[in-house]
Design a protein around this nucleic acid. Structure first.
Lengths: 215, 215
DNA sequence: TCATAATTTTACCACCTGGTTAAACCATGC
DNA sequence: GCATGGTTTAACCAGGTGGTAAAATTATGA
């Protein structure tokens, strides 16, 4: 059982690169091998199958990006502080790993059930439980009259949407609005404060949630 | 050259279904043929190659969902009316075609350049031009003092993000937060008014865009 | 009715893909 | 040196993939 050998690290680096770009179905074992500077048989020597190699990469991503998020959500900070922290956190995470959102989405769509156990597991630090905590905090802040009445679940989705979406549609932005790489970086950088401001203004507003449409 | 024959329609229905679910790379010609109740050779008889069949489906999606959006953006309505209209429009579109966003994202990532010409073409009704018009309208409304100072591009991304994102992460919602199909429909239905209210409160708020983070 | 063209099927091919086998290579200890 | 065990490679295989050829079937019109 090899552990942390130079070869294994090179394989994981290559696999991460290829899987992130192409997803499970689109990735080719030969391409990963070539990217790692070895041949395909050796790849199977270290990781028995494509599936096992993929799971290494997916779990690694999961373990890398979740703990910090859980720390933020579970802290004693105020709602405003949390909203600002989450925005900064996503900004840093996605600037360093731009392909992460699409990778997760693709994986979840290609193989929904295999990942369900991981996401749904009822252990401490479980994301669902953390989201539940944040929802309670939102509910309390609303009852105290700090913010207008709203559905906590709705707010959480909005927070994540505003922070993650630009990275998901980055290719659209670059082709449709002619946004170059440096433009995107400037844009994303500006949003790391503009987004929490936008959210905080929204939840302080006076329009109740259930207002019917006027068009 | 066959046109609109019953077989061709069955093929397009089948291709739409399979391509939407699995993307270009994941789709199998045999599966499309079986779904259409014919065999693979006939598929190639109607559409010479997988690539051509795929482009039919992609262009069809593009032509179906864009004109109405352009009509909304190009109308004489006020900014508030447009924001409400866009939210309703996305809600209807994505409720009827839940797989559309992921299909577009996947396609754009798999084959970015082939679709660039379509998105970037400088013809009237070109999306980039419509977005430009909306950006000018936002800028004017801000100058009139109706809303706080903000970056128009930022607002457009926020509008789209809040409307589209829930449909993109629907699989996450169902597994992580235990949201059943009927729950999601209720949730999305509520958002079609909650989202424009959220946005309008946000842009009426008093926090300037450039406030530095406080955490 | 029957020739002609359009439609549909059967059988097939070349190529790619994940995975395996067996042999070769190489470090280590004696 | 050389035996041993972990590491790496070349060669290969079975199954699946997009695509094609040619025969069979069905519609069309004179």
């Amino acid at each position: 059982m090899p552990h942390d050998s130079a070869t294994e690290i090179r394989i994981l680096d290559a696999a991460r690169k290829v899987f992130y770009q192409k997803g499970f179905g689109g990735a080719r074992m030969d391409e990963i091998a070539q990217e790692a500077g070895i041949n395909k048989a050796l790849l199977h020597y270290y990781f028995r199958s494509k599936q096992q190699l993929f799971e290494h990469i997916f779990n690694e991503a999961y373990d890398r990006f979740l703990p910090e998020m859980i720390r933020v959500l579970g802290s004693e900070a105020s709602l405003e502080e949390k909203i600002r922290s989450i925005s900064l956190y996503y900004h840093n995470l996605l600037t360093e790993n731009p392909l992460l959102p699409i990778f997760v989405l693709k994986s979840l769509q290609e193989n929904p059930d295999a990942l369900a156990l991981r996401l749904g597991a009822d252990r401490p630090g479980n994301p669902a439980r953390m989201v539940g905590m944040l929802m309670r905090q939102i509910g309390e802040a609303v009852e105290e009259g700090k913010y207008k009445a709203m559905d906590p679940q709705n707010l959480i989705i909005n927070i994540i949407a505003l922070n993650v979406f630009p990275f998901i549609i980055r290719p659209v932005l670059s082709r449709m609005m002619g946004m170059k790489d440096e433009d995107f970086i400037t844009f994303a950088d500006m949003r790391k404060t503009a987004v929490p401001n936008f959210i905080l203004d929204a939840i302080k507003g006076d329009t109740p949630d259930a207002l019917p449409p006027q068009v």
